[in-house]
């Protein structure tokens, strides 16, 4: 399969593709190296350089010590906030999206096409169109500036993607299978548990990875609906940059950036194949 001859043309191709790959890795390499350099060292030279003294302490400071807006607890509380939003919202939107996708793909009920069509419109509706109504709804139900509010938003909005993913996957299950099970007396939930769910792991992994990555990385709702100690880590990073703008702490900031990026990077490294499938599945809407 792989071509093993090295003609000049092929050497050129390898050279091109690997130099591009190296360029793509520059930002990651820079932030990794800076996360173990001291602020003084970075100011004296530049962001691009090899650590002279490995300042592993940056990670401890970034995790538990530095100050954002009068609170000196590091990035830890904001990481916890992001986890407390991303994990429940991922589970809720995936579970309900799977059931809804199952219902619209394998069952007929009045208005099914119509409602599915509207739900998928949610993929295209910009967040800016929902910002104001969400503000008012969250305020009226007393969830403004709470993590529960963010969970609510992401659980509901995530349904557009999760329903689409699962529906497109379940549509390939032969209807005869469902029909036979119904003749045997199996109902909606039993067919889901016994037939559909055992076939679902691949699409559920895709959906979970997609939802988790998106919710963890989300910024606009986090910065709009929460303040101070309630903010997710993306909003806290911006607040941190603003707080240290006068005396940049590039070493500690780099460590904070690394910590904030780690969960989704790990998910990507472990489930890359499923991540790409989510990307391409989302593209063929």
């Amino acid at each position: 399969m792989r071509d093993t001859t090295f003609t000049p043309g092929r050497i050129l191709i390898y050279l091109a593709v690997w130099s591009l790959a190296a360029a793509w890795l520059v930002p990651l390499a820079v932030v990794m190296l800076n996360s173990v350099r001291t602020a003084e060292e970075i100011v004296q030279t530049s962001m691009i350089g090899w650590p002279e003294h490995w300042a592993w302490d940056n990670y401890r400071t970034a995790w538990a010590d530095f100050c954002v807006a009068q609170t000196c607890a590091g990035i830890r509380p904001y990481m916890l906030n992001s986890a407390l939003v991303s994990i429940p919202a991922t589970i809720i939107s995936t579970v309900f999206g799977a059931v809804a996708g199952y219902a619209v793909s394998l069952w007929r009920f009045p208005g099914d096409r119509w409602i599915y069509g509207v739900v998928t419109l949610g993929l295209f509706l910009p967040q800016q169109m929902r910002l104001l109504p969400w503000t008012i709804v969250l305020r009226d139900v007393g969830l403004i500036n709470t993590l529960t509010g963010l969970v609510l938003i992401h659980s509901i909005q995530g349904l557009s993607f999760t329903t689409l993913f699962c529906r497109n996957y379940y549509i390939a299950i032969p209807r005869e299978l469902i029909g036979a099970a119904r003749i045997d007396g199996a109902g909606f939930f039993r067919i889901f548990r016994r037939i559909v769910l055992p076939l679902s792991p691949p699409i559920l992994i895709v959906t979970v990875i997609w939802q988790f990555t998106h919710i963890w990385n989300e910024f606009l709702y986090g910065v709009t609906f929460t303040t101070g100690q309630q903010q997710p880590v993306t909003a806290a990073l911006i607040a941190l940059s603003a707080a240290v703008a006068d005396v940049p702490q590039h070493g500690v900031q780099s460590a904070a950036v690394m910590i904030a990026a780690l969960p989704t990077l790990l998910v990507y490294l472990l489930g890359g194949r499923y991540f790409v499938r989510g990307l391409t599945a989302g593209a063929v809407k």
């Binding site: 793509w24 910024f219 950036v257």
Partner: peptide
């Protein structure tokens, strides 16, 4: 994987870097 990894990271992180 190298060309796709930025897609897994938040724009806040990459924008800061």
């Amino acid at each position: 994987s190298i060309f796709l990894y930025p897609m897994a990271v938040s724009f806040v992180v990459t924008g800061t870097v």
